[in-house]
Computed example of a mutant assay.
Amino acid sequence: MTNTEKNSNPVIAVYGASGHTGGYALRELQRRGLTPILVGRNEARLRAAAAAAGLPDAEIRLADLDDPAALTAAFAEVDVVISTLPAYVTFGEPVLAAAIAAGAHYTDTSGEQLFLKRAFDEYGPRAEAAGVTVLGGITNSNLPGDLLGHLAARQVSAPAEIVMSLVTRGEGGGSRGSAETVLAGLDWFRAGGWHYEDGELRTGPIDRHTLMTFPSDAEPTAVAKFQQPPVLTIPRHTEVSFVAGVVEAEMLSQLSGFTPDVLDSLPEPGTDLRYELVLDASGADGTAVRGVLTGPDAYRDTAIMAVEAAARLAAGGLTPGALAPAEAFDPAEFLNSLAVHGITWRIDAAVRSGGQ
């Protein structure tokens, strides 16, 4: 059977399974009746992660990130690799390269523009040549941002202008892995990364969207440019003049004092990790709509989305190469499939932001 044929009993490998998001991915695979292969360097931690997810008989394969041959061998006869590492700009490429070399489809939970651009530019052609599909950046903000961007832009006059923000609604904090990710690309995060404007990716400040009135809020919130991977993916499938990610300005200001020392003091994420992904699309004729996705747990939902993407990759039929979510899946159908997990979405009339 080739990786482009339908597979009703997929073999899925997880690299990074002992992490916070990786554990959720294992539990979701177990819920679906799938027993994944756990790949990593620490057998004891991997066995503990498998047991905690109710998968005591899961196969363990050992491979270090600095051993390409071992990684490729670990992914042999695997249909899909799910990578749930932190800091993909530092650690992500070996797993991606090995998956392609082994002839496996690939998805991950990265949230870094710089890594996703490498996945498209450097690894997309390799994946196409190998006949496999790469879907990077499947997180609770990236995937819905891309899918909602596709849907919302088609309800306004083209080319659309899009701005999006992930809004924290719960009291729980971020994971150690998230902190490692920020630290690995700290200067990029502080500077806001790329936005898309008039046909190209640009760095530097943006001159609009300095305020957003979020759902249920009476007053607008000051926001600042923030690196968001859908800035790279939405223009691949949608006619747009501008795409940017923003975040609450107060939250971004906290990165000014962010140092490696913070890792040692980070507790585990709390249980209240509710969030909203808010995306506003406006057209040149003044039409405007707002897409909102709401979920109960940022890390759990990221894992669920990654596993859903992996199951669809394993089913076959996707174009080889690196794809954006909306290039791979029907946007509304994929978003609707998440409702069983308490993840909901809608598109309605937009609230005009004060920074237009």
Rank of each mutant, 00 (worst) to 15 (best):
A332P: 05
G321S: 06
A130T: 04
G19Q: 13
I60G: 07
A70E: 04
V246M: 02
Q356G: 13
A69R: 10
P235Y: 12
N336G: 14
L273A: 08
G192Q: 10
R236L: 13
A98P: 01
E180C: 00
L293I: 02
G291K: 09
A222H: 00
A50G: 15
V81I: 14
R190C: 06
L71E: 10
L323M: 11
A87V: 04
V307D: 05
L318Q: 13
L186C: 02
A74M: 05
T213V: 12
A339P: 05
A314Q: 03
E248N: 02
D108R: 09
V340A: 15
S175F: 06
L266Q: 07
A152L: 08
S337G: 15
G321Q: 05
R32I: 06
L85Y: 15
G270Y: 09
S353E: 04
Q155N: 06
V134C: 13
H237L: 01
T271K: 03
G54Y: 08
H195I: 01
L38P: 06
A218L: 12
G149V: 07
G23M: 01
F115I: 06
P86A: 12
L62T: 03
G137H: 03
Q155L: 11
L293H: 02
P205F: 01
L147A: 09
G22E: 15
L96C: 11
R126P: 07
V340H: 13
H150T: 04
A314E: 08
A50P: 10
G103C: 12
N9T: 13
T344K: 03
E171V: 00
T139G: 15
P125N: 07
L71V: 06
L338Y: 07
G321W: 14
M305D: 08
A119P: 10
A339D: 14
W345L: 10
D121I: 10
R346H: 14
L186K: 02
A51W: 03
E122S: 09
I12R: 15
G355S: 12
S216C: 01
E28A: 14
R312T: 11
P325R: 07
G193Y: 00
H209L: 09
V11S: 14
A153D: 01
L148I: 10
A102M: 07
F214L: 13
N142L: 09
V289H: 14
F226Q: 00
P36K: 07
N3D: 02
A102T: 08
I82Q: 10
A153M: 03
P320W: 13
L38D: 08
V243S: 11
G54L: 12
S216G: 00
A222F: 00
E122N: 06
D121N: 15
D66P: 13
G124M: 13
Q113G: 09
E161N: 11
A249Q: 03
P220T: 09
H195T: 01
G257W: 05
G16E: 06
E239I: 05
D187C: 02
V80A: 10
V167T: 12
L293W: 06
A314V: 08
G111L: 14
L277V: 10
R346P: 01
L114P: 11
P56R: 12
V89Y: 06
W345M: 04
D67W: 07
L38F: 11
A349H: 14
P205K: 01
E77L: 09
A184M: 05
